[in-house]
Amino acid sequence: MEAEYRCPICHEGLTRHDHALCCVNHHTFNIARQGYVDLSRKQKASGDNRAMVQARTRFLEQGYYRFLRDELTKLTADAGVLVDIGCGQGWYTKALGGQLKYGFDLSRQAIRHAAGQDKGTHYAVAGIYDLPLADGSADVVTSIFTPL
């Protein structure tokens, strides 16, 4: 299923054209080689850096939070559209249910890692307080360890 993003600038729908997403007002967002798109309006780096993403990944792969991921996977098994806000490197997101899944985080490094590991989810760099999705488009929204 193709992602249905909206432009973070004018809030119009985005359409894929080659390796970019564009709106009717010609705002354009390139799709990275790894498959994610940067829909953040921030120009400077924010969120976790590469070393933090690698450290968290090593920790999570030790299995300390597998019980939580397994339970969340069961709870989301029948989800239609699932949105994971503050998804980090996608460790939980990849395992969650959902016919169409989105993962959002402000960290380009985390999203780059997530998109490289999980081709079944649409990942984007974006803030969680103004998601680039149409209102009411999600059936399930998760926020795992992300302060709201």
Results as ranks from 00 to 15, higher is better:
Phe104Tyr: 09
Glu71Asn: 12
Ser137Met: 00
Ile9Leu: 14
Asp135Asn: 12
Gln99Asn: 12
Asp78Gln: 14
Gln43Lys: 11
Leu148Arg: 12
Asp48Trp: 02
Leu21Phe: 15
Ala79Leu: 06
Gly13Met: 10
Gly120Trp: 00
Cys87Met: 05
Gln43Ala: 12
Ser107Gln: 06
Asp38Ile: 07
Gly127Ala: 11
Asn25His: 13
Ala45Ile: 13
Gln99Val: 11
Gly86Glu: 06
Ala45Asp: 11
Val141Asp: 09
Pro132Phe: 12
Leu21Thr: 12
Arg16Asn: 09
Arg50Trp: 06
Tyr102Ser: 07
Asp105Phe: 05
Gly97His: 10
Asp48Ala: 01
Phe104Asp: 11
His122Phe: 13
Arg41Asp: 04
Glu61His: 02
Ala32Ser: 08
Trp91Ile: 01
Lys74Arg: 15
Glu2Gly: 10
Ala114Met: 04
Glu2Ser: 14
Ala134Gly: 02
Phe67Lys: 09
Gly63Leu: 08
Asn49Lys: 05
Cys22Pro: 01
Arg66Ile: 06
Thr15Ile: 10
Arg69Asp: 03
His27Ala: 09
Gln89Tyr: 10
Arg112Lys: 12
Ala110Lys: 08
Gly98Ala: 08
Lys74His: 10
Ser107Lys: 09
Tyr65Gly: 00
Glu71Gly: 09
Val125Thr: 00
Phe67Gly: 04
Asn49Arg: 07
Leu75Phe: 07
Ile111Lys: 03
Ile31Ser: 03
Leu131Arg: 14
Val37Cys: 03
His27Asp: 04
Asp78Glu: 15
Lys94Leu: 01
Thr93Lys: 02
Ala55Gln: 11
His113Val: 04
Tyr64Val: 10
Arg33Ile: 10
Leu72Cys: 14
Pro147Glu: 07
Arg33Met: 09
Ala51Val: 10
Leu14Asp: 13
Ala138Gln: 12
Arg58Gln: 13
Gly97Val: 04
Tyr65Gln: 00
Gly80Glu: 12
His11Thr: 15
Pro147Val: 14
Arg58Tyr: 07
Ala126Val: 08
Cys87Lys: 01
Thr93Gln: 03
Arg33Cys: 03
Ala51Tyr: 07
Cys87Val: 11
Tyr102Cys: 14
Leu106Tyr: 04
Thr121Ser: 01
Cys23Thr: 15
Ala95Met: 08
Gly103Ala: 03
Ala114Phe: 00
Gln62His: 12
Gln34His: 05
Ile144Cys: 08
Cys23Ile: 10
Arg56Lys: 00
Ala138His: 03
Ser143Phe: 05
Ser143Glu: 01
Val83Cys: 08
Ala95Pro: 02
Ala77Phe: 03
His113Tyr: 14
Leu21Arg: 11
Gly63Ala: 05
His113Glu: 07
Thr121His: 00
Thr76Trp: 12
Gln117Glu: 06
Ala32Asp: 08
Leu21Glu: 06
Gln89Cys: 00
Glu71Ala: 13
Val125Cys: 02
Tyr92Ser: 00
Ala51Leu: 12
Gln99Ser: 15
Thr146Tyr: 01
Lys101Glu: 11
Gly88Cys: 01
Leu21Met: 15
Met52Gly: 07
Lys101Ala: 10
Thr73Glu: 13
Pro147Ser: 02
Leu106His: 00
Ile85Leu: 15
Gly88Tyr: 01
Leu68Phe: 10
Val37Arg: 13
Ser137Pro: 08
Phe104Asn: 04
